[in-house]
Simulated assay, not measured.
Amino acid sequence: MRVYLRQPPIGTAPLRYVQLTLAPDLFGGWELVRESGEIGGRIQLRREQYLLQEEAQRAFDKARDSQLKRGYEITPAPGGDDGP
């Protein structure tokens, strides 16, 4: 599962984005990957491991909702690949 969020343009400030990806790992757990930064600039990548899918899903939903409250909007991912 993947969601791509982008901050609406504010003046001449560079556009910022957040991409959240939730996927099973090789050991039977779940991994939440948070990628954020300026479009065309440096990025920050954080990975969180979870043993249970429900726990990982709650963390994914909480991260998504937090970004939506900050004014980010869900948009199609660049390249047209919306992922599984």
Rank of each mutant, 00 (worst) to 15 (best):
L52P: 02
P14C: 13
L52K: 03
I43S: 12
I10R: 15
G11F: 06
L26N: 09
R70I: 05
E38Y: 00
P14K: 11
Y17V: 04
L51H: 04
P24M: 03
Q57V: 06
L52Y: 03
P84M: 10
G79M: 03
G28W: 10
F27S: 10
I10H: 14
Y72V: 04
I74Y: 08
G11N: 14
P9A: 14
E48P: 05
G37F: 05
R47E: 15
L26Y: 06
Q19I: 04
P84W: 09
M1C: 12
R34T: 10
V33R: 01
P84K: 08
P78D: 09
P14Q: 12
K69F: 13
A56L: 01
G83S: 10
T21H: 03
A56T: 01
Y72C: 02
R42W: 00
D65H: 06
G83N: 03
D82I: 07
R47T: 09
L15N: 09
R34A: 15
F60S: 03
L26T: 07
Q57D: 08
R47V: 12
M1F: 08
T75W: 12
D82P: 04
F60A: 01
R46M: 02
T21M: 10
M1D: 03
G37A: 11
R6G: 13
L15C: 01
R6K: 13
S66P: 05
G40L: 02
A13P: 07
E48M: 10
R42C: 00
F60P: 07
A63G: 09
L22T: 05
Y50D: 07
A23Y: 09
Y17D: 02
M1N: 08
I10L: 15
G83Q: 03
E54Q: 05
V33A: 02
K62H: 04
E73N: 09
R16P: 14
D82L: 14
Y17A: 11
Q7L: 15
G40D: 02
Q7E: 14
Q7P: 05
G71C: 13
G71R: 08
S66F: 12
L15W: 01
M1G: 10
A13K: 14
F27P: 11
R2C: 12
E73A: 11
A13M: 14
A77P: 03
G40K: 05
Q67K: 15
R64P: 12
Y17H: 09
V3M: 01
A59E: 03
G79V: 04
L5P: 08
R6Q: 15
G79A: 06
D25W: 11
T21A: 15
E54H: 04
Q57E: 11
G83K: 02
I39A: 14
G80Q: 04
L68V: 07
D82R: 08
E55Y: 04
L5Y: 05
Q67D: 13
D61C: 11
V18R: 09
L5I: 00
R64K: 14
E54P: 02
R64I: 09
E55S: 08
Q53E: 12
F60W: 06
A23C: 04
L5W: 12
G79Y: 00
T12M: 15
A56Y: 02
E54A: 07
P9R: 14
R16F: 13
G71P: 11
Q53N: 05
Q7H: 12
V18D: 01
E54M: 00
P14T: 07
R2Q: 13
V3N: 01
D25I: 07
E38A: 06
A56M: 00
